[in-house]
Design a protein around this nucleic acid. Structure first.
Length: 288
DNA sequence: TCATCACCTGGAGA
DNA sequence: ATCTCCAGGTGAT
């Protein structure tokens, strides 16, 4: 009999845990209140009492409050490891991010550290975003595709993007020209959307999965990075018949994902978030 | 198809 | 102080 997660402890969103789980980069806690940039939207979120204030008349459902978390938790609850991760991080949620920001953010994430990624994105906003005032504070929105398309690579370099600058420029152009269209990617199935994303210079399996999971409604996406790989090797090498021990080639990545999906089900991405959070926390060393 | 390697940059550790 | 090493990968041989 599976352990049912139905207590309020698990269904209430925990902001600290969720924001500090490596999904988002442009969030700051000021005087106990979280402020974040989501595309052109600025959010102000308080934990207790729980309150979300958006700069937009029509706020996005950034925190995925429409998710049936009880059902999801029970569905991914396949073994003791996931069970302990869910228990250890009650209130951890996936977020629904602005697709363009998410797309650029994870292109910037390659071979970088979270601290660095935050710096890069902050500078991108400061340099190319719109200055706005919200709740008595100054913010810079995330630049749009047009703005980033029309910027010089050297200006991207000045934001510290390094070799990612050319990726960002090209990716922005693809979004601006319409050769990649997020609303369309939301509608089509996971595999087709992933294939389209991987056409973009600078997007491979891992980055594509992050974009799909965090902004394009593909909850079966299961990004496999160095940490996920470690998790698979440490705890799942038997269940997944040694696949996790091999290097992460194109075919292997796909094969692993297939098994993961069979095992964890349609909400596999949620299981990834819990496992990732747990493994990173285990290895402390201020990873955020 | 697969294994190697270079890659910008900034921060941590030696 | 100065250096090495590495970080949520990807693209090119």
């Amino acid at each position: 009999m599976k352990l049912p997660f139905e207590m309020q402890e698990f269904t209430r969103i925990n902001l600290d845990t969720t924001i500090n789980s490596g999904q988002v980069f442009l969030w700051d806690k000021i005087d106990g209140v979280w402020y974040g940039v989501n595309g052109t939207e600025i959010l102000r979120v308080r934990q207790n009492p729980f309150e979300i204030i958006s700069s937009q008349k029509k706020p996005s459902d950034f925190f995925r409050q429409d998710d049936n978390i009880e059902k999801i938790l029970n569905e991914i609850n396949k073994d003791n490891l996931v069970r302990s991760a869910v228990k250890r991080f009650p209130g951890l949620r996936l977020l629904r991010q602005d697709p363009f920001q998410c797309y650029i953010s994870f292109i910037c994430s390659s071979n970088s550290s979270i601290q660095n990624i935050k710096q890069m994105l902050k500078r991108l906003c400061h340099k190319f975003g719109k200055e706005t005032y919200f709740e008595g504070r100054e913010f810079f929105t995330f630049p749009d595709a047009e703005k980033l398309t029309n910027t010089h690579v050297k200006d991207l370099l000045s934001c510290g993007l390094g070799f990612r600058a050319k990726y960002v420029k090209e990716a922005a152009r693809a979004a601006y020209s319409g050769s990649i269209e997020f609303d369309f990617l939301k509608k089509i199935d996971y595999n087709s959307a992933k294939q389209d994303l991987k056409e973009i210079y600078g997007i491979g399996n891992k980055v594509a999965d992050c974009i799909l999971l965090f902004s394009l409604e593909k909850l079966e996406a299961f990004p496999i990075d160095i940490w996920t790989q470690r998790i698979l090797q440490k705890y799942y090498s038997k269940k997944f018949s040694g696949l996790a021990e091999k290097s992460l080639t194109e075919k292997n990545y796909e094969s692993i994902h297939k098994k993961i999906l069979e095992y964890f089900g349609q909400y596999a991405g949620y299981s990834q978030q819990f496992l990732f959070k747990m493994e990173r926390d285990l290895n402390k060393r201020n990873w955020l």
